[in-house]
Simulated assay, not measured.
Amino acid sequence: MNLSLNINLIIIIVVSLISIAGFSRPVIVDRLRFNAWQIINRNEYYRMLSYGLVHGSWMHLLINMFVLYSFGEAVLYYFKAAFVTGAAIRYLILFVSALGISTLATLIKEKDNPHYNAVGASGAVSAVVFSSILFAPYNPILFFGIIPVPGIIFGVLYLIYSKSMAGKNLDNIGHDAHYYGALYGLIFPILYEPSLAIHFFNRLMSFNF
């Protein structure tokens, strides 16, 4: 197994171990979770990233890590094909930076709310999924884990749903993080190689399901 594949497994192992430890030791979650008020008023900027290391439940953790494992390998393959060197480090940068980028809107929205907390790597996982859609927009994604849907169609529906739910603010799910993490995942590879935007457009026009 090469380094490019190892970096994804390393991320999964580290996140899983810390999350599992947090299930029995709430102080770990309390110290690492996202809290905009503490970030702004106590200068605890590390929380912009550390919240991705802990999860709210076994289901939350397992879903995120399964999706990350499934799509991470594909993204690493695409990165190796698109970039001459540095696929693994670019993947690591994508994952880590997506944790911060995906919560910027929430940071602004909740900066005066000391009671708002968030955990989970969902924003970064969304970025990985949408990076895969950039390279292969018609590759199927299993909707609800059962129904195969072309990635680009799933992506559009996901963005519409996340944006709508973020505006309604009806639950404790970080829909803003999902939305902005997904958009960032589309943009990130293009920042390194702008010609990938043309590649994406050409693949869209091919209608190759």
Rank of each mutant, 00 (worst) to 15 (best):
S19I: 03
I20P: 09
A21G: 14
S24R: 08
S24F: 12
R25S: 12
P26N: 11
P26D: 12
V27C: 03
I28R: 09
I28D: 07
R33H: 15
F34P: 13
N35I: 05
A36V: 12
A36R: 11
W37I: 10
W37D: 08
W37P: 09
W37A: 14
I39D: 10
I40A: 15
I40N: 10
N41D: 09
R42I: 08
R42F: 09
E44R: 13
Y45S: 12
Y45I: 15
Y46A: 11
R47C: 13
R47W: 07
R47M: 07
L49E: 05
S50G: 03
Y51R: 10
Y51F: 15
Y51N: 13
G52S: 10
G52H: 02
V54E: 01
H55A: 10
H55D: 06
H55L: 07
G56P: 02
S57Q: 02
W58T: 13
H60T: 11
L61D: 11
L62I: 11
L62Q: 10
I63K: 09
I63G: 05
N64R: 00
M65A: 06
F66C: 09
L68T: 00
Y69K: 04
S70D: 04
S70R: 06
F71K: 01
G72N: 04
V75A: 13
L76T: 03
L76H: 08
Y78S: 04
F79V: 00
F79A: 10
A81G: 10
A81Q: 15
A82D: 05
A82Q: 07
G86D: 07
G86C: 05
L94K: 01
F95V: 14
F95Q: 05
V96W: 07
V96H: 05
S97L: 15
S97H: 04
A98Q: 02
L99H: 05
I101T: 09
S102I: 00
S102P: 03
L104N: 03
L104D: 01
L104V: 13
A105M: 08
T106G: 14
T106Y: 08
L107E: 04
L107V: 12
L107I: 13
I108E: 10
K109Y: 02
E110V: 12
K111T: 12
K111G: 14
D112M: 13
N113G: 12
Y116Q: 13
Y116E: 08
N117Y: 15
A118Q: 15
V119S: 12
G120F: 00
G120W: 01
G120K: 02
S122G: 05
G123L: 02
G123W: 05
V125W: 00
S126H: 06
S126P: 00
V128P: 00
V129L: 07
V129C: 00
F130E: 06
S131N: 04
S132K: 02
I133V: 07
I133R: 02
I133T: 07
F135A: 05
A136M: 04
P137W: 03
N139K: 08
N139S: 09
P140I: 01
P140C: 04
I141D: 00
